[in-house]
Design a protein around this nucleic acid. Structure first.
Lengths: 105, 105
DNA sequence: ATAACTACTTGGCATTGTCAAGTACTGATA
DNA sequence: TATCAGTACTTGACAATGCCAAGTAGTTAT
């Protein structure tokens, strides 16, 4: 999988995942990996960044299976950002796909 | 347009464009801009990189409208790289789109 | 007590795109 | 003929984001 393709898209995937339900980092890593192979060291800093930018809020929940989990919850600002990024991706991907298909003629 | 989305994709667009026909930098910039808004300062270094990596060969052609044009011609290696990147993109974009649609349910 | 699994953190690095400024050639215009 | 617009290419400093690797720590089972 081309690393470069992931740039920016990972942010969208993470926003969409957290928008769907509150989730903690480790679970999110596992979930995102089902779609795009990705590293822990990529997701955690991304979560921190998106929290700093006001898209997420966090809270801790004790766990019986290890250290406490930091849950991420999306904010109103986060929802706006999600829609923005999503439509931007859809437009982008469509125009790239159109170009690829035209080239095949 | 999200800058990050372009990462890696620009390489594919440029490869496909040169594969279609020999083209010089300035014309390529104009053509790529129709699909994705992009900077001269992005395209020229990319052309240089792809040439160094053996995907393109170049030759100069005099012009009556300005300085000589450096044409780019795709190599066999370049064609292989194009196919590789193209199928990688198609897989990637499809799986991201699938995820986005699922999230909408 | 040691290993395995869960969970999060961090620092250095690589890649690729942007911005801005610069060089240089041609043709038209004032 | 000086200057400007258009064509064409180059380059250096910079920003953003993902990767790798190593580290910290809690819980449970052997």
């Amino acid at each position: 999988m081309n690393t470069q393709f992931k740039k920016g898209v990972l942010e969208l995937i993470v926003l969409l995942s957290v928008a769907k339900k509150d989730i903690y980092g480790y679970e999110l890593v596992a979930q995102v990996c089902k779609i795009i192979d990705v590293n822990e060291g990529t997701i955690y800093p991304l979560l921190k960044r998106l929290t700093n930018e006001g898209y997420f809020e966090t809270y801790l929940v004790e766990s019986t299976e290890g250290p406490p989990r930091k849950y991420y919850h999306i904010t109103v600002l986060g929802k706006e950002r999600t829609e923005e990024l999503k439509s931007s991706w859809i437009t982008f991907a469509a125009s790239v796909n159109k170009f690829i298909e035209e080239e095949n003629l």
